[in-house]
């Protein structure tokens, strides 16, 4: 398969960026999107005229949350329920022109080309996204009975990989889905209930402080989320947050 790529190039955080056009040929349909970029990069390096395209990635199996590209206007590309690294080229037609951009959101400044700084996500979690238990003080694991339903719902929320697609997709750059997932995960478990209200308060305050926008319940985030994190978690967050206010 052959493709024309229009890729966002930006030298560093301070420089202006622009799109540049490249072509790649002889790509297998089984090849992943990032492997296709590897092939482009190898040829750019050998040509020596331009630097290879910088993009984040690590596990390449959809779990570390490091990769994330805006492809033809969609976070993680045209397929759903997957990350960019899991996207194969059989989702495109040969001859296609593909537009590749970084996440665009004020709290995620571009570092270089397609790499953005998502440190704000860590900061939100540092503010309170945990159960405050010291090593060694736990009681026997089966002393908390947790219904299968609660355990599964907690798991579904906890499946978030912190990729930031939700923020990149939201027209307000809201981090609500990401924050709600963590709050909901912990609030559903008996161990996490004690701090639930405080936790919600602290995390939401941090999110606001870092410049993420408000949630207007459009739901686009959930559609593009590679882990299908559900909007119901936002409702749960709102409940916890209401408790925090009154």
């Amino acid at each position: 398969m052959n493709f024309t790529l229009k890729i966002w190039r930006q030298k560093d955080a301070k420089s202006e960026g622009c799109f540049k056009k490249y072509t790649v040929s002889d790509i297998n349909s089984d090849t992943t999107f990032l492997e296709m970029l590897d092939i482009l990069n190898n040829s750019l390096i050998l040509e020596g005229k331009e630097e290879p395209v910088a993009f984040s990635h690590d596990c390449r199996e959809g779990i570390c949350g490091m990769c994330g590209l805006f492809i033809n206007g969609r976070a993680h590309g045209p397929d759903t329920g997957i990350t960019t690294c899991q996207l194969t080229m059989r989702n495109f037609k040969t001859g296609d022109t593909i537009i590749v951009e970084p996440w665009r959101a004020k709290p995620f400044p571009v570092i270089k080309d397609l790499i953005v700084d998502r440190n704000s996500f860590d900061k939100i979690l540092q503010a309170g996204g945990y159960i405050s238990v010291n090593t060694g003080s736990a009681q026997d694991a089966n002393s908390h009975l947790i219904s299968q339903k609660d355990a599964e719902e907690a798991f579904d929320a906890s499946a978030c990989i912190g990729c930031g697609a939700c923020v990149a997709t939201c027209k307000n750059s809201s981090a609500m889905l990401f924050v709600a997932a963590k709050i909901s995960h912990l609030a559903r478990l008996p161990q996490g209930k004690i701090e639930a209200v405080e936790r919600a308060k602290k995390m939401v305050a941090k999110m606001d402080e870092l410049g993420f926008g408000g949630c207007s319940n459009t739901g686009a985030c959930s559609v593009e989320c590679p882990k299908n994190i559900s909007l119901t978690h936002i409702a749960k967050l709102n409940r916890e947050f209401l408790k925090a206010k009154f």
């Binding site: 945990y130 159960i131 736990a138 026997d140 694991a141 355990a151 995960h185 161990q191």
Partner: peptide, 17 residues
């Protein structure tokens, strides 16, 4: 024990164990 206390959602049976 430690992981469960931290909120790790391990699989459970119907009775919650």
């Amino acid at each position: 024990d430690q992981s469960v206390a931290q909120g790790v959602p391990f699989a459970r049976d119907y009775a919650g164990y």
